[in-house]
């Protein structure tokens, strides 16, 4: 059975314009799925709707089942329970996703206390383990630091530690590396890849960057103007795109990739 099943999802704003139309996809336990699209394609909205976190003013229709819970129709209390326990989200901008008035350690402790009922020494240990898991070495200092005292990469690691602290079965990553430098992006992608592997977490990765999603996901859906235009294993999408839009997207990515030639890369362009 799928962990997340989205069927015929449509999202409208309050004046009735469709932002997402008839989107269907599924994420099985341990699966790694990419949602690819450019700004305004509806990829982030679809992902937010999957966890019942649509911004106010937007309404979703269709069916979204996360671990069997109807994320459109169920009461908020049930949806909140599923959200923390089953699925969590990492956002693009860790500076706005983290509470600026709370230390990194306390932010990570939050979900651990809420969902696993840890306290005292056990909680402190769990926080340290969570920080070590995202390869933050100076756990003592970083646990006591406020978000603005950390670098962009460190903040995103804290956000990932927070998201994974309670061992969710699905991690939704919404452009988690777009705001970061290339070298930091590479490290974070690597980290996500490894963590998701170790814990068997399913991953829904949202991005506009084809090469990035190719690094972490296996299957992918290409979205454009609120619809899924093509789906399939990411290798096939890149090698043999059939939809005209996917073709443009692949061509664009190939342009820059080819310009780099075989330079030091892990594989050469066409």
């Amino acid at each position: 059975m799928s962990l997340l099943t989205v069927e015929g999802l449509s999202i409208r704003n309050s004046s009735g314009a469709a932002l997402v139309s008839d989107v269907s996809f599924a994420v099985a336990p341990g699966d790694r799925t990419g949602l690819i699209g450019e700004s305004g394609s509806g990829k982030s909205l679809s992902a937010l709707a999957s966890v019942g976190l649509l911004p106010p003013g937007l309404t979703a229709t269709g069916s979204v089942r996360l671990d069997g819970v109807d994320m459109i129709g169920a009461p908020e209390r049930r949806r909140t329970g599923v959200r923390g326990r089953v699925a969590s989200v990492v956002f693009q901008e860790p500076l706005t996703a983290l509470d600026p008035l709370m230390t990194a350690g306390r932010q990570i402790a939050g979900p651990l206390r809420r969902f696993q009922g840890l306290k005292g020494e056990a909680l402190r240990t769990a926080v340290r383990v969570a920080l070590e898991e995202v390869r933050l070495t100076d756990t003592e200092r970083i646990g006591k630091a406020y978000p603005h005292q950390l670098s962009g990469g460190q903040r995103q690691r804290v956000a990932i530690a927070m998201a994974l602290a309670c061992r969710p079965r699905l991690l939704i990553a919404d452009e988690p590396t777009t705001a970061l430098d290339v070298t930091v992006q590479a490290e974070i992608l690597d980290l996500l890849d490894r963590l998701v592997d170790t814990h068997g977490t399913a991953l829904l990765f949202i991005t506009h960057d084809l090469p990035v999603v190719a690094k972490v996901a296996r299957g992918a859906h290409v979205m454009r103007m609120g619809r899924i235009v093509e789906s399939g294993p990411i290798i096939d999408l890149i090698a043999r795109p059939s939809d005209p839009y996917t073709q443009t997207l692949v061509e664009s990515a190939r342009r820059f990739d080819a310009a780099l030639g075989g330079a030091e890369g892990d594989s050469s362009g066409s």
């Binding site: 070298t183 990035v212 690094k215 990411i234 890149i238 890369g265 594989s267």
Partner: peptide, 8 residues
């Protein structure tokens, strides 16, 4: 250079 994600 090694950090640049490349197309497979």
């Amino acid at each position: 250079l090694a950090s640049v994600p490349r197309l497979p």
